[in-house]
Write a protein that binds this DNA or RNA. Structure first.
Lengths: 113, 113
DNA sequence: TTTACACATTCCCATATAGGAATATAATTA
DNA sequence: TAATTATATTCCTATATGGGAATGTGTAAA
């Protein structure tokens, strides 16, 4: 994505399916890179690179323990996305209401015949 | 993004800031392309292309009226994202709770001295 | 102080894609 | 039918980025 210097914001970070998967695996469980490699069956550099992107976006943090790096999810960093989505919630409810009204209208037509 | 055939899913579609802006502008207001161009001050092809991506992802629909195309947001298509995020909600609450407990603990220490 | 291990980083390549300029297309008007 | 308008599409270029292979780095063990 050029021109739009997308310096790893949260939205871009979770656009990648593998990164969403990493978050799903890591949520509630701290894990080191080796465990993530084993779980995902991806090559180690692939795991490390995606972790790097998630870290740049603030979505994960890392802690060193011996020669291992232990990663965890910073769940609260997902909140901005939820807030962005939330502002549209009423509109999809509204759309369902309209569909509902429409179906009721059809129903009433049927009743009158 | 190669290798990961990212055939315009919702997550990818909203990763682009301009596309989020289009959704924000369009939500609750049907608008034609010319109005979007005027509102955003972007070049017309830029607007049309981003609308094309949003449409491929199902996030907007289009209706023809004369030579104009009128676009609207399909808000309910944002729901999958909300659902994905929602599963992590309890974890960020938990993190706040832990911070809270920690702060209380500090407070108590202070009180005891 | 070598060797082995866990992980990050670099180099390379293929591909995706944002945006500009130009052009095509479809509908309206003259 | 010709000209105009509204919008989409194509062509081009620069750049971002995912993944593989190889290599670097720091830490622990021999």
């Amino acid at each position: 994505m050029p021109k739009t210097a997308n310096t790893y914001d949260t939205f871009t970070a979770i656009a990648e399916p593998k990164r969403r998967q990493l978050i799903e695996v890591l949520i509630g469980n701290e894990m080191n890179v080796g465990e993530l490699v084993e779980t995902t069956q991806w090559n180690q550099p692939v795991v490390s690179k995606h972790l790097g992107v998630l870290k740049a976006a603030g979505l994960v943090s890392e802690r060193r323990e011996g020669r291992q790096r232990i990663y965890r999810v910073n769940a609260q960093e997902l909140q901005p996305i939820q807030l962005w989505i939330k502002q549209f919630e009423k509109y999809w409810n509204q759309q369902f209401d309209q569909l509902d009204a429409y179906l009721n209208q059809l129903q009433n037509k049927g009743d009158n015949q």
